[in-house]
Each structure stands twice: as structure tokens, then as C-alpha cells.
Amino acid sequence: MAFKDYIRERFFPHIWCPGCGHGMVLKGMLKAVEKLGIDKNNIVMVSGIGCSARITGYVDFHTLHTIHGRALAFATGVKISRPELCLIVPMGDGDALAIGGNHFIHACRRNIDITAVIMNNRIYGMTGGQYSPLSGIGKYASTAPYSTIENKFDIVKLAETAGASFVARTTTYHIREMIDILCMAISNKGFSVVEIFSQCPTYFGRKNELKTPTDMLNYFKDNTTPIGSKVKEANPELIERGVFINSSMPEYCEEYDKIVAKAKKNTEV
């Protein structure tokens, strides 16, 4: 099946700005699905609200475009009801970790078999460039005209601590790495978190001296390094990319099946 067979061409062109990274993530996700050869009828893609969330409209899967921050809660309902389906949840950084932070940590904790893809552009794009919990200190945004003073989350550490069984980070510059990581994440039987740095030249870049998409992609190239690389020792401020956690842990739906068996056995006695 060709990559094009996974999109709903009728609904293009997409709504994203020129130079936005989200289209690259979309293609990366579809390439991963193509590589894994998953039947389109078995994929449910659930999203919340924001630029990232619009992805669901363009893909030819079962798609659920929900409310702000709650995509993982909707996805949990779908997954528990039909555990054989493959659940992919693309989210923005604000969607996943501000309004949706509670659902995010609890989905990690349950280790339910869902792949969360966090398209981290460090800004609220849809509403016009407000700072997010991933902006970090000293950034400019439409609600931070004098610069931000809030610390940012480390998504990888947060997901790891909360109990996700697969945790990885990559960027839109490293597209082949992104596809490989997404393949691993989707294949993992458990909750998978993939943080993808995605560029928003329109709002984040323009206000933070990364005015063009190329500037932003080069920023991802120059400021990240594979996990455990020697370069990191010399430049500790570099952000690591790659797979941080890939472990086998009890998965929620499989554990619930055991509860069903236990309940049925108890009533037979």
C-alpha cells in the first residue's frame, strides 16, 4: 500500500502554516504505519484541540477529534472497549501537558497500550502564540511580552517517572530516526510516549530569533545529540534524542482480562 493511501485527499490542503513541522510528523507517522503494515481499519487516531490535533482529519483511519487536553481519556475508552485496535494519539505540548497533564500521567501509570505522540513546538499556535509549559524560561510569546519566567517540563523524565513503558525523543530534522522510533513505539505493548520537536516558525520562531523554518530545523540539529554520545560530555546542555525507556511491563487491557476471568471464576463457585 502506498503512503498516499493513508490520507483523505479530499480534505487537503491542510490548515498548517508554511514551514510548520506538523506535516512532517504526519508523514513520519504514516510512514511508520506503512512500514508496520497495519490495516487501516485497525487504527484509531484520537486527538484533542490545537494545530497538532487537526492531524486526525487528514488520515484515513477511524479518527476522533475531541476536546482540549482530553484525547487520552477518549482513547482510553476506545482501547478498553476494543483492545485489539491500534490507538495513536497525536498531541500538542499544551494539549498534552497543560490542560491534559492529568490524563497524560495517568495513562503512563496505567501502561495502557496507546502511542502518544507529543508534537512539541513550545507554543500555543492555534490561538496565536501564547507560551506553553514547554516554552521554558526566557522565551517570548504573545502572553509573555517581557519573556517567560516558568520552568518547562522534561517530557521524557515525566513519562518515565509516571510509568510509561516506552519513552523516546526525536525531532522533525531527524525524520528517518522519527520513523524508526514511531515504529518501535506503535509496536510496544504498553503506553508509549514519543516527544517530537516540531517547528512553529510563525509564532515561536518569529519571537525567539529563529525566524525561518530552516533556522528552526538547524536549531534541532545543532542542539540535540543521540543518547550517550561523546559530544554530550563536552556539551552537557545538548538535548538527548533516542529511546530512553523500552521495557516490558504489565499492560492495562491484558490485566483487565485477568480481572474478567477472576470475576467469572468467583461467580461460578
Partner: peptide, 26 residues
């Protein structure tokens, strides 16, 4: 669970409402 149905205690009230919508769609 006795009838093969599913019960989940979600992390909050909002999540409970969202989860039943997701389940209804299946």
C-alpha cells in the same frame, strides 16, 4: 466483569465522561 463488560475508575470526572464517549463509538 462477570458479564465480560468493562469498568474503569478514571483519574477524574472529565476523563470518565470522555472515556464513555470513546467506548460508545466502538
Amino acid at each position: 466483569p462477570i458479564k465480560g463488560g468493562k469498568f474503569i475508575q478514571m483519574e477524574d470526572e472529565i476523563a470518565s465522561m470522555c472515556a464513555i464517549i470513546g467506548a460508545s463509538l466502538t
